[in-house]
Design a protein around this nucleic acid. Sequence first.
DNA 1: ATACGGTTTAACCAAACAGTTAAATCAAAA
DNA 2: TTTTGATTTAACTGTTTGGTTAAACCGTAT
Lengths: 206, 206
Amino acid sequence: MTDLKNENAEEKILNAANEIFEKKGYDGAKMQEIADKAGINKALLHYYFRSKDKLFEMIFGLAFKKLAGELEFLFDTDIPVTEKVKIFIDKHTDFIGMNRHLPLFIINEVNRRPEIFVKLLAGIYEKDDHLNMLLKQIDEETKAGILKPFDPRQIFLNMIAMNIFPFAAKPLVKGILNMNEDEFKEFIKERKAIVTEIIINSIVVK
Amino acid sequence: MTDLKNENAEEKILNAANEIFEKKGYDGAKMQEIADKAGINKALLHYYFRSKDKLFEMIFGLAFKKLAGELEFLFDTDIPVTEKVKIFIDKHTDFIGMNRHLPLFIINEVNRRPEIFVKLLAGIYEKDDHLNMLLKQIDEETKAGILKPFDPRQIFLNMIAMNIFPFAAKPLVKGILNMNEDEFKEFIKERKAIVTEIIINSIVVK
DNA sequence: ATACGGTTTAACCAAACAGTTAAATCAAAA
DNA sequence: TTTTGATTTAACTGTTTGGTTAAACCGTAT
């Protein structure tokens, strides 16, 4: 049972469900286990969320927003692109480090049931103009001779791939590279600078 | 039912089980579905593989070897490191493209039950000398002024992260970047050159 | 005091699922 | 022709699981 802040039942359920769904996925998560972790009983669990599907849908939606929300600052400010990259990698790496299972959870569930993701896409494309602003900014900095021409989609993918992968595959990475927890932490700390340099190098004019 | 090559029952089972375990994971896979896809019945399935666990263990071991086997050529030849990188990215991207679910399957199951992976690690470290040869080669090329000093672990992770991620998260990527199947294929084709350039740039002296 | 909503208890149901069993079938080897 | 091993059929067991139900409990606001 996780009851840090004297939460009410609904919060306790959401926190427990979030943790278990993220770690075990829809199929691996059991309603009884969620109830146990929330410190309540199964009857009350179904009293608040009628079914596993309804509860899952809620958790998945929240998780998706949490992950997507980390991108927002890329659009809002008007600091230079290279600064954005530096700050993004720093913050995003910390965020993923504190939410190790989040990206894989989203990826897995979207792979297995793409429908659940279609609705959420609509929400994303409300921010179409924000995205266009970023693209315009990149275009301008390219014309100004600061950035070289590049495909923002590719660079974006590279950045999040390099950020997410070591955490998503943490036990595998630790095993194969033969690291203990401290060595892994050190390895991650070094990564920030390395990844930042790689991304910066692949977009700025030298 | 998948029966391309007039396989015997055991092969049919292994192929079906592989496909279903990779796509749905241990928890999502059902023995009945595996039997159906293999074109046999549940009784025979248990006749060949006594339990779901035994069958899974077999599939997981094979999958792990398949994935790890793709790395072997990095050690065996003595072509220059930069050449290895170019060839590896080319081949590895093709391989992952044809085995979209393989990496995520391994990562997920190792995350959820790290024990299953401990035994397999032993097999890897028989190849310790192969690995040391590669590290030695890198060291020599660095001293020869061809490569700059870098952490091979970091570069290796970057390489496979960038290779694997777009395929592992394919439906997510297609949705977010608003691509159809053809556009995705084109996007992947362009990636090879981009990723190769990035990795080469981050290891060679300019 | 009582009425009410949140919460517990405990038993229960129906479906899904892994795994078993016994008898029947069938093809090919002996 | 008989034997053997692979395969099917179909019923069955035991367990897990999602979900329900009804009665009781408990604190709090009226």
